Simulated assay, not measured.
Amino acid sequence: MLLNLLTSISRIAAALIVILGLLWLLLARPSISFKDASKASPQLVDQPALKKHILMLSEELAPRDYTHPDNLNKVANYIADSLRSSGARVSEQLFEVDGVEYKNIIGEYGPPDQEIIVIGAHYDAKGEFPGADDNASGVAGLLEIGRLLAEKELKTRIALVAFTLEEPPFFRSDNMGSAVYARSLAETGAAVKLMIALEMIGYYSEAKGSQDYPMLLLNLYYPRIGNYIAVVDKMLSTQAQRMKTAMAQVIDLPVYSINAPTFIPGVDFSDHLNFWRYGYPAVMVTDTAFYRNRAYHSEADTAARLDYGKMAQVVYGVFDYVLKLSDEIEK
């Protein structure tokens, strides 16, 4: 009797281990990366420039919510000038919501063909909060990537797009700036190689327990210390795993990926969701937002709390991966 019970328990335990292992393979997509020191040059990223951009958006040009369209226009003009100074072909995408005009800013590099790689970040903020991490950090990363791209000969069109109206009350609506832009790509038949959303890339912590997750199960697969960057993707896609592996080869900051269904809170909480709607491959690069940064959507989300060294590594990792994507020749 006891032997039968022990046998049953051992079988259940073995089955549970197999299930957890399969979930690890499905969600976390473990991979092996070998550092390539000859190609790792995160020092090329201008950390003072990152901080300057974030201070400008979070202090000088705040507040950046939809009720302050004049400020949003000033931010848009600042972004356009920065992209233009890096040699981008800059354009505005104007659209109207409730009688007020808003705009996305688009900076393009490389050949003007139908295939395109999109890197995007929203420049609006929640209410009258500073929004340094959310999402001045993403915009700063976008502008620095533009400066780095200006020095490269590209084989694929790359669009750096600063979106407006990502925050409530427009989130998940057709009035999101990224929804307007993604729809315009679909209508023109653009072939999107990948869309990368930069969503809060500046906050890191070495404290134990500084990292939370939407499901207790994820604590088995990911660290409880918030000192890494995450690449988020939908189920069954390989985009996040490829990007994670490539980034880990050229930066020291730990990189994790997750492929998860959208019912898990946070998986589709940014502009990449609008590209998924049109069947485009898209990922989110993030410090995990409110699962780590306790200052999310508050007055405490200031430039002084951000880690510009780690942010620079993220920017370089994204830049390097985009270059690799641009050099790929479709068979």
Rank of each mutant, 00 (worst) to 15 (best):
L6H: 05
L6F: 13
S8Q: 10
I9S: 09
I12E: 03
A14S: 06
I17W: 03
I17Y: 04
I19R: 08
L22F: 13
L23F: 11
L27R: 14
P30Y: 12
S41R: 15
L44S: 05
L44F: 05
L44Q: 15
Q47Y: 01
I54A: 09
I54S: 03
E59M: 01
D65C: 05
H68N: 04
P69F: 01
D70E: 15
I79K: 12
A80T: 10
L83D: 12
S85H: 08
G87R: 05
S91V: 04
E92G: 03
E96A: 08
P111G: 04
D113I: 07
I116D: 10
I117K: 01
G127I: 13
A132M: 04
A132V: 03
D133R: 07
D134C: 09
G138S: 10
G141M: 02
G141S: 08
L142E: 06
L143I: 10
R147P: 11
L149V: 08
A150Q: 14
A150N: 08
K152Y: 00
K155C: 00
L165A: 08
E167N: 07
P168T: 06
P169I: 04
R172C: 01
D174F: 07
G177W: 03
A191M: 10
V192W: 01
L194W: 05
M195R: 00
M195I: 00
I196Y: 00
I196A: 04
I201Y: 10
S205L: 07
E206M: 09
K208R: 10
Q211Y: 10
N219P: 00
L220I: 14
P223Q: 04
P223M: 13
N227C: 01
A230E: 11
M235P: 14
L236G: 04
M247I: 00
I251F: 02
P254F: 04
N259E: 11
A260E: 14
A260M: 15
T262Y: 13
D268R: 14
W276Y: 13
W276Q: 05
M284A: 07
M284T: 14
T286H: 04
F290A: 10
R292N: 03
R294G: 04
Y296K: 08
D301Y: 03
T302G: 05
A303I: 02
A303F: 03
A304N: 10
Y308H: 14
Y308G: 13
Y308P: 14
M311Q: 15
A312S: 15
A312G: 14
A312D: 11
A312N: 13
Q313Y: 09
G317F: 01
Y321E: 01
K324F: 00
K324Q: 06
I329G: 11
